[in-house]
Amino acid sequence: MPERTQEFGKYGARGIKGYEAVARRLDALAGFVVTPVTVRRGLLARLHYLTRTPHARAAARAAGLTVTDRTLKAWLDGRRNPSRKNLERVETAYRTVRRHNVARHLLGRLNREGRGTRVEIHPLNQSQVPRPRQRFVEFRALNIRRWDRIVAAWAADDAQALDDAWVDQIVDLGSQWGQYEYVTNVGFAA
């Protein structure tokens, strides 16, 4: 069985870790607010999401948004603007709460009652690697039936757990799974 890559990019290969590509795709499926938090519209969208119910407020506080209700009201009314540090806290709290809220729904769609979801793995880019050092790596497809660990690690924003969960799934590619530790893209729909 192949070991993990030790010196990725030494000869010019380019790509990202497979779990990072999966996290990006799950983020896209989660449907975050596109407008940046630094723009008033983006800030208001995030604040409304985080303050519309008592449960959302409690989740926002647990995620690190610890300003008073009076300050939140002033931000919503436009009487005051949050500092850069508070903008980062709003963004972090929003992403944390949104991931937590979407995770269960996304998990059901990806697992599809045990049928799973087809995942397309696009290999790393070797265009800059000298010809004798290139290895044959092709596009692969894999059906993942159990997304529980992957989605849980993504929702918790735990990179190490997400990496471990992703590697546990790509081992199903056989003895070549180590060639897909780094990829250019991972695609799936839910």
Results as ranks from 00 to 15, higher is better:
D148A: 06
W166Y: 14
Q160D: 15
Q176W: 06
Y180S: 11
Y182R: 06
T184Y: 02
D164F: 00
I170W: 10
Q169G: 10
D158V: 00
A161N: 14
R146H: 12
V183P: 04
I170R: 11
A161C: 10
A155Q: 08
Y180D: 13
Y182T: 05
E181K: 00
I150H: 08
V151F: 13
A159T: 13
R149D: 15
V183E: 02
Q179P: 02
T184G: 00
G174R: 04
A156K: 12
G174I: 04
A159V: 06
R149W: 12
A165K: 14
V183T: 10
V167M: 07
Q169T: 12
D158Q: 06
D157V: 13
I150K: 07
W147K: 03
W166A: 07
D168N: 09
D164K: 02
L173M: 05
L173D: 04
A152N: 04
D148W: 08
Q179E: 10
D158M: 00
R149Q: 14
A159L: 11
Q160S: 14
E181D: 08
V151Q: 09
V183D: 04
V171P: 07
D172V: 14
Q169K: 15
L173E: 00
W154K: 00
W147S: 05
D168L: 03
R146W: 07
W154D: 04
V183N: 03
L173I: 03
D157H: 14
W177P: 06
A155R: 07
Q169Y: 13
Q169C: 12
W177C: 01
Q169N: 14
R149F: 11
G174T: 09
A155W: 03
L173F: 00
D172Q: 15
Y180Q: 11
D164I: 02
A159N: 07
T184D: 01
Y180M: 12
D148C: 03
A161S: 15
D172L: 15
D157N: 15
L162V: 07
A165N: 10
R149C: 01
V151E: 06
W147P: 03
S175L: 11
V151N: 08
Q160F: 09
V167P: 04
A155K: 06
V167Y: 11
I150V: 15
D172I: 13
A156P: 03
W147C: 00
I150D: 06
